[in-house]
């Protein structure tokens, strides 16, 4: 059935209910459409214009028939409303004891803050078979948190909190994480030249949810996150981790690392330790303290020639150290 209706895989407890409703509506629509078109085609053929055959005058209509097709559909419609609303209420009321994750939408990335204070950007660990509540807000414009595999969606609005909850029913694989889309139009950088990359505009504002076993999530909450697994064998774990953050947290959308001009932010190659001019006069040495400040509070000292367009990123100290290590390594090249 599902391959026929083209719905995405069912990954949450809501999905079967939603899909049942979808398929019910689908077959109801097919039946109604076929009936209406069949009657229409039959009449058009049967009563086609022929010489000598006049149309029969309509007369005064048939009130019983009119009332029937006015009010009988109400029964079906009432059923549709009831079923749709029943599932909607379930989706709106989270159970007690959910695992809470704060979500911040910003142009054009998703930030997930777990209860241990660790923030992940554009990816998040989610425990399987556990009710998870997302407490969401936006730091700039409207976004919408849309997970097709879970059949959930809710706008992320600046100035207020909205919530979503779900219970994932299966583990995801690294090759096929559960994808989060932004469903509310949120624009693109003007004059953007790298619109094909992740996290540069509305259509690439995505995140990956990694559905992991409950014990693994519990461990993560207790012990926190370190460098990603792929950096375990790296020569310099910190440089590798910094590069990973550069690629996954949206830095690469604006910052080039090839030493050439272009991009919406300063090129990272050869910038560390240099004296750089600031927007509005003055200069500063790009040392550890400055890099940290410009990640956490980018509007404080904007590099000359660039706009104040970078949103603040909530990275932990170890992560910032990794990014700095990565930048330092670029100087060596």
């Amino acid at each position: 059935m599902n391959q026929f209706s083209q719905l995405p895989p069912q990954m949450s407890t809501f999905a079967p209910d939603v899909d049942w409703m979808y398929l019910f509506l689908f077959w109801l629509s097919v039946a109604s459409f076929v009936a209406i078109v069949a009657v229409m085609v039959y009449f058009v053929f049967k009563y086609r214009r022929r010489p000598g055959v006049e149309a029969v005058p309509t007369g005064h209509g048939n009130t019983a028939l009119e009332l029937a097709w006015t009010f009988l559909p109400l029964i079906v419609l009432a059923f549709l409303f009831h079923e749709g609303f029943r599932v909607y209420v379930q989706e709106s009321v989270p159970p007690e004891n959910t695992v809470d994750i704060h979500v911040t939408g910003k142009q054009w990335s998703w930030e997930f803050t777990h209860s241990n204070g660790i923030t992940e950007t554009n990816e998040a660990k989610i425990p399987v078979h556990t009710p998870v509540r997302l407490i969401m807000s936006s730091s700039d414009v409207l976004h919408s948190f849309f997970v097709p595999d879970f059949r959930i969606k809710r706008d992320v609005v600046p100035g207020m909190y909205t919530t979503l909850w779900f219970e994932a029913t299966a583990l995801s694989t690294p090759e096929r994480p559960v994808r989060v889309f932004c469903a509310e139009y949120c624009g693109a950088l003007q004059g953007s030249t790298n619109g094909n990359d992740r996290n540069t505009n509305h259509s690439t504002m995505m995140a990956d949810l990694h559905i992991i076993p409950q014990e693994e999530y519990a461990t993560f909450l207790r012990e926190g996150g370190g460098p990603p697994a792929e950096c375990a064998d790296a020569v310099d774990v910190n440089v590798c981790w910094g590069q990973y953050i550069y690629a996954h947290n949206g830095c690469s959308a604006c910052h080039e690392i090839n030493g050439e001009a272009g991009g919406h932010g300063p090129n990272w190659m050869g910038v560390f330790g240099e004296e750089i001019a600031l927007e509005g006069g003055g200069s500063v040495t790009a040392d550890d303290a400055y890099i940290k400040r410009s990640i956490l509070d980018p509007s404080a000292d904007v590099v000359s020639g660039f706009g104040n367009i970078m949103p603040p990123y909530r990275l932990r100290d170890q992560e910032i150290d990794a990014v700095i290590a990565f930048m330092r390594s670029l100087n060596a090249q």
């Binding site: 209420v89 207020m160 909190y161 909205t162 919530t163």
Partner: peptide
């Protein structure tokens, strides 16, 4: 419905 929902 949800104390969080819509709370400023």
């Amino acid at each position: 419905v949800d104390a969080y929902n819509g709370a400023r």
